[in-house]
Every structure is written in structure tokens, then in C-alpha cells.
């Protein structure tokens, strides 16, 4: 069974571009640019990996993290942070985030983190050419 990944970033282009990149890893990807909608979807479905931006206008990335952790500790949460936000990143790690990745990043940077997360979940992902 494919890993289920949710990607949340309030910049629509992030989701638009990363979706095909992650699909290539052989995962099922759902993309959101609205945190409220994403939270609703998290309540409905159990995701293996959640990738979320840490700074969004309406709902904070940390809130999403807490929400996910409350629902399932098993889910790996990868935070996307901005420049010089080590303080927020540290808070996120304390709250149980799997890892963080700083903007700007390349698609491969995220894919590598996802591959690592999948490994801790016992799934071996391989990029499909």
C-alpha cells in the first residue's frame, strides 16, 4: 500500500509543483493551501506523513502539528520553515515534529526527508524515474 502524504502550504505553487515530485516516490499525495480545510481532511483520513508550512496567515503550522500529534503519534510531521526561524523549528521539534526543512529548498531536499521518514515507518521508498 502506498504511503499517504498530506502537503499543506498557503502558497499554491508549492503544492502544485511538489505534488508530481512526491508522486514519483510512489506515494498518494493530497495538497492543500488552506489550513482549515487541511485540518478537516486530517480528521477524516489517517495520513502517514504530513508536510506543513510553519507560518501561515490563519492557522499556525505548530497548531497543525499539535492537531496531528493529538490524532496519531505515528504520523511523521515535516515542517517547512522560513529563513532564520530556528526558534520556531526548535519548538516544533519539541512538540514532536519529525524534521524541518528551510525555505527555499529543492524538490529533492523534501524527497530525501520524506524517504527518511518513510524508513522510520518501515517503508522503503525509491524514486521512480
Amino acid at each position: 500500500m502506498n504511503l499517504k502524504i498530506l502537503l499543506l502550504d498557503d502558497e499554491p505553487i508549492v503544492g502544485k509543483r511538489l505534488k508530481p515530485a512526491i508522486i514519483k516516490l510512489g506515494c498518494d499525495v493530497e495538497v492543500f493551501d488552506n489550513p482549515a480545510k487541511a485540518l478537516k481532511r486530517i480528521d477524516e483520513e489517517a495520513f502517514d506523513i504530513v508536510v506543513t508550512d510553519i507560518r501561515m496567515d490563519e492557522i499556525d503550522g505548530l497548531e497543525v502539528l499539535e492537531h496531528v500529534m493529538n490524532k496519531s503519534v505515528r504520523t511523521k510531521v515535516i515542517m517547512i520553515t522560513g529563513y532564520a526561524m530556528m526558534e520556531l523549528a526548535r519548538q516544533a521539534m519539541e512538540k514532536g515534529a519529525f524534521d524541518f526543512i528551510a525555505k527555499p529548498f529543492k524538490p529533492d531536499d523534501l524527497r530525501n526527508v520524506i524517504i527518511k521518514a518513510a524508513e522510520t515507518l518501515g517503508v522503503r521508498l525509491k524514486e521512480q524515474g
Partner: peptide, 16 residues
């Protein structure tokens, strides 16, 4: 901080 968003978008799009 604000500049990160367009740069990130450009990086991702260009790489893809």
C-alpha cells in the same frame, strides 16, 4: 522572510 516565498516557488518550479 517575505522574499523566501517567491524564491522558494521559483526554486521548486525551476527544478521540476
Amino acid at each position: 522572510h517575505e522574499l523566501n516565498n517567491p524564491i522558494n516557488n521559483i526554486t521548486l518550479t525551476a527544478h521540476m
